[in-house]
């Protein structure tokens, strides 16, 4: 099956088994390895990407239903030499450890804060439940996210092509 879709603004074509997960297509076919394969069952959130602006877990999404979709991965969430507001907050608060969960964390929370620019701490915690982290114990990540509130500059570069 042939699937035509836009990945980070690039017109892209996949040919193969339509049941292959978007995660495998991104990592193995297009070598976009920023999207992480961790649990493979939709529990951990490390493979979160945006499809048509909505966060989804790429490990659960068959490529066959994505013809015409606009996919944004961690590689396309911010212009080349910039960090988006969530990435910047994580950087400023020095919360990254091993880093494997952070691409998915950035994708989920960027979408959440765009929809909820001024959340309470409990709401941020709820929003993070689908993103598991083994290193950090979460709370400092939440501290960082609370600093983003009200900025409303959490953009996902939905279909703009990222160029250098």
């Amino acid at each position: 099956m042939t699937v035509n879709l836009a990945i980070n603004g690039d017109a892209s074509t996949y040919e193969g088994d339509p049941r292959t997960s978007l995660l495998d297509v991104l990592r193995n076919h297009f070598r976009l390895t920023g999207t992480k394969a961790v649990c493979g069952e939709g529990f951990c959130g490390a493979c979160t990407v945006h499809v048509n602006g909505k966060p989804i877990m790429a490990c659960l999404q068959p490529i066959g239903v994505l013809d015409g979709a606009e996919v944004t991965t961690i590689e396309g969430i911010a212009p080349l030499d910039e960090l988006n507001a969530v990435q910047q907050a994580f950087e400023d608060f020095d919360v990254v450890q091993c880093g494997m969960c952070f691409p998915g964390m950035v994708m989920s929370l960027s979408a959440f804060l765009k929809e909820n620019p001024n959340p309470e701490r409990d709401e941020v915690k709820s929003a993070m439940t689908g993103n598991i982290c083994r290193c950090t114990g979460y709370e400092r990540i939440i501290d960082a996210l609370m600093s983003v509130q009200g900025l409303e500059q959490v953009s996902s570069q939905k279909s703009e092509k990222v160029t250098s």
Binding site: G34, K36, L83, E91, D94, G99, P103
Partner: peptide
């Protein structure tokens, strides 16, 4: 000092290549 870590930006951008990312 609270010196920041130099690997965080690439980890946040998905650019860091772990061993599992090295299947060329």
């Amino acid at each position: 000092m609270n010196f920041p870590r130099r690997d965080s930006q690439d980890k946040l951008r998905g650019r860091t290549k772990y061993t599992v990312d090295m299947e060329n």
